[in-house]
């Protein structure tokens, strides 16, 4: 192992790296790899049938569509929340700042039953929407609401530090050259914030795609209508369709890894953008 690293006076390299790799292998890598191995026991046509049946395609459409829309809403709302938290002073700011992370800390099952009860026909919010002809619980709109909830902190937490580090000179220069506030925002601030916004969107989107707990209560889980892909995996598992569940899981895993790669690239782009000239 010695040739892998430079000499150091500090001890414990072999022990700590060895233990880390062993633990990583046992808990994460071997179980994940065995899932991919399991898909190789399927023939290509079996695999294709499992991942492209109409019910599965309907679940992709809902999962991707709702996650995308929720990510977009969170981009806009997250930018406003981050802006307000960094730039303005107002009553209750510290409390609001801490509460933004609630969707990270609140168990998804709790979020699920709370949102379902709120948006049900008789719920605090649902009762207001009912006369307007809008029903949220047990419709695709409900899936969107749950995914917006769980994706909420991502954009705020990626945009906030960039906004905090922004030099006021940038905006001052723009203003002294005659730009108004909106022009400064569009031409100066938005380009600087774009990598952080995109990273936040990608993180929220990736999380929303895999989300289960908060959606399963509010969606109503009707096949072809309000069934998300993670739920379909569980349904297949409960019907002892291990091959089908594995094939779907493999598709989802590949998509997650592609998103992880994209997020890392965005991060790299953002740090290059951010680097002092």
């Amino acid at each position: 192992m010695r040739h892998l690293r430079q000499r150091s006076v500090l001890p414990g390299f072999g022990l700590t790296l060895g233990y880390s790799l062993l633990y990583l292998g046992l808990i994460v890598l071997i179980p994940l790899a065995s899932t991919f191995l399991k898909t190789t026991t399927l023939s290509w046509s079996e695999f294709w049938a499992a991942v492209s049946s109409p019910r599965v395609v309907a679940s992709y459409r809902l999962s991707f569509g709702a996650s995308f829309l929720a990510g977009l809403v969170n981009c806009l709302a997250g930018l406003v929340v981050a802006w307000v938290l960094v730039r303005y002073e107002f009553w209750g700011k510290r409390l609001v700042d801490a509460l933004v992370d609630l969707p990270f800390a609140l168990p998804t099952a709790v979020a699920g039953i709370a949102l379902t009860t709120l948006y049900a026909r008789t719920g605090w919010i649902g009762a207001w929407l009912e006369p307007l002809g809008i029903s949220v619980a047990f419709t695709p709109l409900g899936v969107f609401v749950a995914l917006t909830f769980i994706g909420l902190p991502f954009v705020v937490r990626t945009v906030q530090p960039v906004l905090q580090d922004l030099e006021p000179e940038l905006e001052e220069a723009a203003a002294s050259l005659g730009a108004n506030r909106w022009q400064t925002f569009r031409r100066i601030l938005l380009p600087v914030l774009r990598p952080a916004l995109l990273t936040g969107f990608a993180l929220a989107f990736a999380r929303a795609l895999g989300e289960y707990g908060s959606v399963v209560f509010i969606s109503g889980n009707m096949p072809m209508k309000t069934e998300i892909t993670p739920l379909l995996i569980i349904t297949k598992l409960e019907q002892y369709d291990y091959a089908g569940a594995t094939a779907l899981a493999a598709v989802m895993l590949v998509i997650s890894f592609a998103l992880l790669l994209a997020i890392n690239l965005l991060h790299w782009w953002g740090s290059r953008h951010h680097a002092p000239a």
């Binding site: 990583l24 994460v28 890598l29 071997i30 179980p31 994940l32 065995s34 899932t35 399991k38 998804t108 990736a206 795609l209 895999g210 989300e211 289960y212 707990g213 993670p230 739920l231 995996i233 569980i234 598992l237 291990y242 569940a245 594995t246 899981a249 989802m252 895993l253 997650s256 890894f257 998103l259 992880l260």
Partner: peptide, 20 residues
């Protein structure tokens, strides 16, 4: 690799152990 579990759906995080 250390970050992988964060990008995996919770449902799949359970499924991998069922398959094992």
């Amino acid at each position: 690799l250390i970050d992988l579990p964060f990008s995996v759906s919770p449902v799949i995080s359970g499924l991998i152990y069922v398959l094992l």
